[in-house]
Amino acid sequence: MWDPLWLSLRVALTATVLVAAGGVTLGYMLSRLEFPGRRLLDALATAPIVMPPTVLGYYLLVLLGRRSPIGNLWESVFGGPLVFTWQGAVVAAAVASFPFCLRSVRAAVDSVDRRFEEVGEVMGLSRLGIAFHITLPLARRGIAAGVALAFARALGDFGTTVMVAGNIPGRTQTMPIAIYDAVQAFDYDRAGLLAAVLLGVAVGVLLLVRRMEGS
C-alpha cells in the first residue's frame, strides 16, 4: 500500500536535489551573464512547461533508451539500462519539474538590486564571491519557493514518468501511477487515499511557497 508513497518521495527528493543544483546555476547564469546561445538554452530548459508530458516522456525515452548514446553510456557504467528503473523516473521527474524551479530562481535573481552587487565588486569580491555572498542569499526566498514548487511537480508527475520508467509495482510505480492503476482496478478506496495524500502534500507545499514569497 505504501510502496508507491516511499518510491515517490525517493524519486521526487532525488529529482529535487538535481533540479535545485541545476536550476540555481542556470537561473543565475540566465539572469546575470551574457553568453552565446543564452536564449536557446532558456527556451529549451523552459519547454517542458508547455510540452504535453507524454511528448516530453517520449523524447526522453528516445534520448535515454538502450539504443541511444546516453543510454549506452549509462549501461556500460552502471551495468543496466536507465529506462524503466527508478533512476529513469528521477530523470523524468527532474526534467518535467526543472522549469518551475528555473523560472522562480531567475525571477528572484532578476529582482535583486544590482547596487548590492556593485558594492561587492568595489569591495573586491570575485564574481563567484558576489554570487554566493550577495546575490543568492538575497534571492533565497524565491529560490526556496522554486525548489518547493519543483518538489511538488516532481511528486505529482504522471505522463513523463510513465513513459520513461513504466508502471512496475514496487520498482517504478509512483503515487500518481498507482492512483491510475487503482482506478483501473475499480479500487476507489485505495485511489482516494493515495489521492488525498498527494493533495495534502501539494496544498502544504503551496502554503509554504506563499509564506516564503510573502514574508
Binding site: D113, E118, E121, V122, S126, P137
Partner: peptide, 21 residues
C-alpha cells in the same frame, strides 16, 4: 582596471548593507 582591483571604498545614499548578515 576592474572595480575589484581598484581598492576604493564606496558609500551610497542608501547604506546597502546585506540584510542577511
Amino acid at each position: 582596471v576592474p572595480a575589484q582591483d581598484r581598492r576604493v571604498g564606496i558609500v551610497f545614499q542608501d547604506a546597502l548593507l546585506l540584510p542577511h548578515r
